[in-house]
């Protein structure tokens, strides 16, 4: 998995590319936690094809860790399949999910 990061005045946007799974998630996790200490973090999933249950496990864990220090992880640019995944897992009610980067950074 590759990972690009864009910094804006309103926070950081991380663009993971490829699949989020057990191999790629530790890198993503440490990056998110590092940036979360410096500002708000948005995870753009527009280049992510697929998240399996182990990838989901890591994202949920990330959410839990951030929540302990009153931080949040915003998600945006999800595919229809991914929206469905977040919907039936109930995670769409846990995470703040936005359609666009702009919306995610703006709120």
């Amino acid at each position: 998995m590759e990972m690009n990061i864009k910094e804006s005045s309103k926070g950081f946007i991380i663009y993971p590319t490829g699949d989020i799974d057990i191999k790629s998630s530790p890198m993503l996790k440490s990056k998110v936690l590092e940036l979360a200490n410096r500002g708000s973090v948005v995870l753009s999933l527009k280049h992510v094809h697929y998240i399996n249950s182990s990838g989901l496990r890591e994202i949920v864990d990330l959410f839990k860790i951030l929540k302990e220090s009153d931080k949040e992880l915003r998600l945006c640019e999800m595919s229809i399949d991914m929206k469905e995944l977040f919907s039936f897992t109930g995670l769409s009610k846990v995470f703040k999910i936005f359609d666009t980067e702009k919306d995610a950074l703006g709120s």
């Binding site: 989901l56 949920v60 995944l85 919907s87 039936f88 897992t89 109930g90 995670l91 009610k93 846990v94």
Partner: peptide, 26 residues
């Protein structure tokens, strides 16, 4: 459902498969 992906339902009268969409947290 608690985060489980939808169960498939084969509706014999319509000869088609439907998803039993129901949401709930893991």
């Amino acid at each position: 459902s608690a985060g489980h992906h939808p169960v498939l339902f084969y509706d014999a009268s319509e000869f088609m498969v439907k998803k039993l969409n129901v949401n709930g947290l893991l």
